[in-house]
Design a protein around this nucleic acid. Structure first.
Length: 817
DNA sequence: AGCACGCCGACT
DNA sequence: GTCGGCGTGCTC
């Protein structure tokens, strides 16, 4: 600590208080106060949580400064480099500092100031039943343990009474802090007795107290504190046995903090490093050298599916840890399957912590503490694991780096890749971006020499990449095949079923069908709030239309609401419809369907995959969640029902997405001894994304797409930042967006490296009953435009709020919604 | 974001 | 007359 004032970021989510506030440091707390310390501070009339981000000798408002109230942790949750990182996040993504700090910490870590009210003196007046004062007194007598916050939220009208009674001394306020998540404690038993004392104790116990003797001897022989529940289980004792022993002091009971270990019940067989192919070895060496170099570097590891990237990761991480540095491994949430975790647990055992969204808040908190306390050296996790509070990071790996899930969708809207590169500079660490189909940006940086590129173009077992057939569905229709399966796909499936091999069918949609249309008048059923076409669902015989954005549902109309005709039909193809069709065409084949609807349960995802793996069904049918990271030896055919579902979205990355998706899907086939085949059905088979995906020609796709991007001033040549103005009132939403556009134009006028795309209705023009307008800014370099962006955003954010709406910003937007 | 202060319509 | 509606302004 230095300087008499602590600079504190308060945990209040509002742009208007997004600056450090100065607090005095009571001498009692001085020892425990550091940069990164979490504290409780007075803030206006309330007490809030905050984080110390620095110290200063002076303050501009000395007459206002109050002292810190409390230090909330023994060890600061934020290390200085994380405080710095929070600063980067809030500046780069224009979030509040409080939001940036919260993004860095496990979600459960949130303390709440509490206040208890005690009756100190009898109030002077006489209050009749029914008056607030009477009711309040009743409540205080009946539930003395309710907090003031609880009372006020249940009865806001009591607030003035409480305030005046506190002033008059009728009530006394007792302050406390309630921690959101507590370290979990468990009860341990041990005996303090020595050998001779034990003999004496055993003699002293009644001869009938057989259980007590057993328990005492058991504990003595263990020689260490044991979990009470284990002791009870082992000895058959119960608390009745324990009680007299505790009373006599023969046994002591204590509460100890333990970590909730989500994998405690599982045993992992240790795996040894596998021999590397020359290509893997080359990649591994490149990474190790970069880590050893002690300079921040980024490497693109471009390896086809099946080229053995995971083994390279595992060995590079092992080398990094052997140097005494730590490693972070990021995988897309969807790929964070038990199999994936298992690979790491098998290789690294207790040295690895796992962070993903399926953990409980408590489990997340405990994994985080293991990292913070240096108990582990490796973290495997989804996006936010990039914030793992390690001391000295050597290596950060982002697998499937092109995945959209690496962009956070609420504030701060960070991109994991950028955070990794920032931390790499802090720690002199290496970032590895792994993918078979890198994002255009990453591949372009490699082309420019900013990122080092290592290729692994061959599969480990030397298998050929699967043969991909693209079937023109228009021809199928012309030749009289009105089914959703082309002749090629149908015969392909039949062959596999006969041979007892497995099939994956892929569809980029969920639900029964996409939209509902009247064939007489062209009416399309849309969500009354979002104006998005409704999706047809059939559940338990009930025909429903649902909005996939807001969840609105209505019954399928029998006649057209517009023309009253009876030609209303659902069109398009969803997973349910394909499943039904499969049962019809292949009545003997077992089908497992995987989409958002069948995988909502806690472990349903893993359970369904396990069932497929064990051969319970021959066909796995699903949406993109089955496209990634799965590895089934018996799958020899992969079918894509319709390639264009992702191709004509209003998004400049649609071609890239389609190419990546098709390539990934194709990679699912024939990864083992059996050769694989892929059938892609399309109504636009000549599209370059489909053609290049067909032959797995990433480089050709890249060259084609990069020219395209150049001509349209899109990434990687320009970065995009989008603003969205949202309001229930269409004119108000539009007004804010226009005003923002004006402000930006005036501030950036004359710059030739900036393009402003004017105000336009957002692709999701109406969401949850609110209108949305976008203003999109394209620029070559962020730094020179960051100030105008910030100023315009802040100026209109307040305006938008005054009009009852809001304005959001997405810096380096990956998708315009 | 909260919470308090402050200035206008319907009621114990 | 008061109570309590929510507009505006501040929080070290």
């Amino acid at each position: 600590m230095n300087g008499p004032y602590a600079e504190v970021i308060v945990e209040v989510k509002s742009a208007s208080v997004d600056r450090p506030f100065h607090y005095g440091i009571p001498s009692l707390l001085a020892e425990r106060v550091h940069v990164g310390t979490r504290v409780l501070v007075p803030f206006g009339p309330r007490r809030v949580e905050g984080y110390i981000v620095g110290f200063s000798d002076t303050t501009d408002a000395p007459e206002k400064t109050k002292p810190l109230l409390e230090v909330l942790d023994d060890e600061p949750p934020l290390t200085p480099d994380l405080v710095e990182l929070a600063g980067f996040l809030s500046e780069r993504y224009l979030s509040t500092k409080a939001a940036a700090v919260q993004a860095l910490l496990p979600s459960g870590m949130r303390a709440k100031a509490t206040t208890f009210l005690r009756i100190q003196n009898q109030p002077e007046g006489v209050y009749l039943p029914g008056s607030w004062e009477y009711e309040l007194l009743q409540e205080l007598y009946q539930s003395p343990n309710k907090t003031k916050e609880q009372l006020v939220s249940e009865h806001p009208e009591w607030r003035p009474v409480i305030r005046s009674w506190v002033e008059e001394g009728v009530l006394q306020e007792l302050h406390g802090v309630k921690h959101g998540i507590q370290a979990k404690t468990m009860t341990f038993l041990s005996t303090p007795l020595t050998d001779s004392e034990l003999q004496a104790a055993l003699d002293e116990l009644s001869s009938r107290a057989k259980k007590q003797r057993e328990l005492l001897t058991f504990l003595f022989e263990a020689g260490e504190a044991l979990l009470m529940k284990d002791v009870f289980a082992e000895t058959g004792a119960s608390s009745a046995t324990l009680k007299p022993l505790l009373d006599k002091g023969f046994v002591v009971k204590e509460e100890r903090e333990v970590n909730r270990d989500p994998y405690a019940d599982k045993q992992f067989e240790k795996s040894e490093p596998l021999p590397l192919t020359p290509m893997q070895d080359n990649a591994c060496r490149t990474i190790k050298n970069a880590v050893d170099s002690g300079a921040a570097q980024t490497i693109l590891l471009q390896g086809v599916t099946g080229s053995g990237k995971t083994e390279v990761y595992l060995q590079a991480i092992a080398a990094c840890v052997a140097q005494g540095r730590q490693a972070i491994m990021l995988v897309p949430e969807i790929a964070l399957t038990p199999q994936m975790v298992e690979q790491f647990k098998k290789r690294f055992g207790d040295e690895v912590a796992v962070l993903h969204s399926r953990l409980s808040t408590g489990e997340k908190y405990d994994e985080w503490r293991r990292i913070r306390h240096g108990e582990v050296n490796i973290v495997v996790g989804a996006r936010s694991a990039i914030f793992a509070p390690f001391r000295s990071i050597g290596l950060m790996i982002i697998d499937e780096e092109h995945e959209t899930s690496y962009k956070q969708d609420d504030h701060p809207k960070y991109l994991a890749r950028e955070v990794a590169m920032y931390r790499a500079r802090q720690h002199k660490a290496t970032v590895v971006l792994g993918s078979a189909t890198p994002s255009l940006e990453t591949r372009w940086w490699a082309h420019q020499g900013i990122v080092q590129r290592v290729e692994m173009p061959e599969r480990v077992r030397g298998q050929k990449l699967p043969k991909v057939r693209v079937v023109d569905m228009r021809h199928e229709l012309q030749s009289g095949n009105r089914s959703m399966f082309s002749v090629a796909l149908k015969t392909g499936i039949e062959e596999r079923l006969e041979r007892g091999e497995q099939i994956i069918l892929f569809l980029n949609r969920r639900g029964f069908a996409t939209f509902v249309l009247c064939r007489s008048c062209g009416y399309v059923a849309r969500c009354r709030d979002c104006e998005i076409p409704l999706t047809y669902h059939k559940a338990r015989g009930l025909e429903q239309l649902r909005c996939h954005y807001c969840g609105y549902a209505e019954r399928m109309p029998e006649t057209c609401p517009d023309c009253q005709g009876d030609h209303v039909r659902h069109f398009g193809t969803g997973t349910q419809r394909v499943e039904e069709e499969l049962h019809k065409v292949f009545p003997d084949a077992g089908v497992i369907r995987m989409d958002v609807d069948t995988t909502s349960g806690k472990d349903s995802h893993a359970v369904l995959l396990q069932r497929f793996r064990q051969g319970e069904a021959q066909i796995l049918l699903g949406t993109q969640m089955i496209a990634k990271g799965l590895d089934f030896p018996n799958v020899t055919l992969v079918g894509v029902i319709s390639a264009e579902t992702s191709l004509y979205l209003p998004d400049f990355r649609a071609a890239e997405r389609t190419f990546q998706l098709l390539t990934q899907v194709a990679g699912r086939a024939g990864r083992h001894e059996l050769p694989g085949e892929v059938v892609v059905q399309s109504y636009n088979p000549q599209h370059y994304a489909i053609q290049f995906a067909k032959n797995q020609e990433y480089e050709k796709f890249f060259e084609h797409e990069v020219r395209h991007r150049y001509s349209l001033n899109n990434p990687p040549f320009y970065e995009l930042t989008s603003f969205t103005s949202v309001n229930e009132d269409e004119m108000k939403a539009l007004h804010i967006a226009r005003a923002l556009e004006d402000l930006l134009r005036r501030a950036l006028d004359g710059r030739d490296d900036v393009i402003i795309l004017g105000t336009s209705p957002a692709p999701l023009a109406r969401l949850q009953g609110k209108y949305r307008f976008n203003v999109v800014l394209k620029y070559k370099k962020f730094k020179p435009v960051s100030r105008p962006i910030r100023e315009a955003y802040h100026a209109l954010q307040g305006e938008a709020q005054k009009l009852g709406g809001y304005l959001t910003i997405d810096v380096n937007a990956q998708m315009i919604l």
